[in-house]
């Protein structure tokens, strides 16, 4: 089954790449927009998973990421983990407070980088079927200017 799923995703990925209407990630020497270090942290059961990736924008315009989708997930949201210290009324507390925030979009600055990384911004991914460590799943990013790009995410174990 994992092999089948892998192939399925592979073919979906290829279809996604073929459908891309921005030549941004074509195999040229200069890639004006790219995504790297894309991986998902596997957890058991049907729990939502966190996805991470680095988005690099070498164009002169900011790119606003407005949606992410994948055949392996029924919903993907943008979240940010935050650690709060010394908040008003929290003086009595030991250590910090972990907090998550749901974001509508994230911005990759012109000639800049945006990182979904552990302990900070992450994709909150609600799965639609079985996913196993070692799988590769395609995720399509959609930007406010209409650009889409599909990236393969590697599924790693719970400890990353």
């Amino acid at each position: 089954m994992p092999v089948f799923r892998h192939l399925l995703f592979k073919s979906l990925l290829l279809a996604g790449v073929a459908l891309m209407f921005v030549p941004a990630v074509a195999a040229t020497d200069t890639v004006p927009f790219s995504v790297s270090h894309a991986w998902i942290r596997w957890l058991p059961g049907n729990l939502p998973l966190a996805g991470y990736a680095t988005l690099e924008n070498d164009t002169s315009e900011a790119r606003i990421l407005v949606a992410a989708s994948s055949p392996a997930f029924k919903r993907i949201e943008f979240h940010r983990s935050m650690e709060m210290h010394g908040m008003k009324g929290m003086d009595h507390m030991m250590g910090g407070m972990s907090h998550m925030k749901h974001l509508k979009s994230v911005t990759v600055p012109a000639h800049g980088t945006f990182r979904f990384g552990p302990g900070a911004y992450h994709l909150m991914m609600w799965r639609s079927g079985d996913i196993e460590v070692g799988d590769h799943v395609p995720v399509t990013f959609r930007f406010s200017n209409g650009m889409t790009m599909t990236v393969e995410f590697a599924v790693r174990g719970p400890a990353g």
């Binding site: 942290r41 957890l43 059961g45 729990l47 939502p48 998973l49 966190a50 979240h79 983990s81 972990s98 998550m100 552990p118 302990g119 992450h122 909150m124 991914m125 719970p158 400890a159 990353g160």
Partner: peptide, 18 residues
């Protein structure tokens, strides 16, 4: 923590496991 916490909780538990 809580299990529907896909980022901070597994990072912390993974760190302890390491």
């Amino acid at each position: 923590g809580y299990t529907h916490c896909p980022d901070i909780c597994p990072i912390t538990l993974g760190h302890l496991a390491a």
